[in-house]
């Protein structure tokens, strides 16, 4: 479990993270969404013990991460631009990780060679950008960390590799209860992967939701009434959005599906259709007026 309370980080008078709170349960895949400059990378680096927060606490399983070898041995950070030692081969990097991380598994490393199909004796810097990223994943999965923190990790991977990597991630989480935090500026990239999503904007985690709950908690209704939509109905529903198409009223409402249906039925509608909402739509409505954030994350 990762818990962040009131975390603040300022660079040279520029506040990158301003009092962020976040909770990632054990075994979750947590997607951290937000536009560029929202403070995602800074937040992840603090979580990984690279940067030190000015204020607030960052704890993994209740322990402070900063300068904590015990926690950091179980935690791996994959940056947006992966780093390898100059002229190092994958094998040399694997040796390096093996000496630093007790959980590193030689067997797993050998096993994954067939998945990634890279030459472990070639200098990593001679690989293409996408292949370097694959190498980083290969090493990361061989370390078998309890907590894997990744900053925009799927950028630059082709669809085939992307699917493979996602598959591996899901397996690891299922088998070992690995906790994953993964950042992206694109919701669609995380939709089929994450169980939880946090939305970050202007240095703060604006909202944090379980995706299933989110899906269950917002509905699109198509309604028609004999004498138009009664005013009282609007008062009894938590309406996020309202649109009228002739005699049909389109409502986006918050609330449990069954209760919403009951409430509407009490007014005897001629038509009542409960339509599914895509995750993108949910986000769009949740974020309301913040057009910039909405467009980056959802587009």
């Amino acid at each position: 479990m990762i818990q962040l309370v009131d975390v603040t980080k300022t660079f040279d008078r520029f506040a990158a993270v301003k009092g962020a709170n976040m909770m990632v349960p054990k075994g979750a895949i947590y997607g951290l969404l937000g536009p560029n400059g929202a403070g995602k990378t800074t937040l992840l680096k603090m979580m990984a013990g690279i940067l030190r927060q000015d204020r607030g606490t960052i704890a993994v399983d209740g322990e402070d991460v900063w300068e904590n070898v015990r926690i950091k041995q179980r935690l791996l950070f994959l940056p947006d631009f992966v780093y390898f030692f100059p002229h190092a081969t994958i094998r040399q990097m694997a040796d390096f990780y093996e000496q630093l991380y007790p959980s590193f598994s030689r067997g797993r490393f050998m096993e994954l060679q067939s998945v990634f199909g890279l030459d472990p004796n070639k200098k990593i810097q001679q690989f293409s950008k996408g292949m370097q990223r694959q190498a980083a994943f290969w090493l990361a999965f061989s370390v078998q960390p309890d907590v894997l923190i990744m900053d925009e990790p799927l950028d630059g991977l082709d669809a085939f590799v992307r699917r493979h990597v996602k598959q591996l991630l899901i397996e690891e989480v299922a088998e070992r209860e690995m906790t994953v935090v993964i950042s992206s500026h694109n919701l669609r990239e995380l939709e089929d992967l994450c169980g939880m999503v946090g939305l970050m904007a202007r240095g703060v985690v604006q909202l944090e939701r379980d995706l299933d709950e989110l899906r269950a908690g917002m509905h699109k209704l198509q309604l028609a009434f004999r004498d138009g939509c009664p005013g009282e109905l609007a008062e009894r529903l938590d309406i996020v959005h309202r649109e009228e198409r002739g005699s049909i009223v389109l409502l986006i409402v918050r609330g449990e599906k069954r209760r919403v249906e009951e409430t509407v039925r009490a007014f005897h509608p001629l038509i009542l259709d409960v339509l599914p909402l895509s995750l993108e739509e949910i986000f769009m409505y949740e974020m309301g007026g913040d057009a910039h954030v909405r467009e980056t994350v959802v587009s």
Partner: peptide
């Protein structure tokens, strides 16, 4: 920058 981030993410005390 990149090596600083990498090295300081490793489980070694400063």
């Amino acid at each position: 920058k990149r090596s600083a981030d990498f090295i300081h993410s490793l489980p070694i005390r400063r």
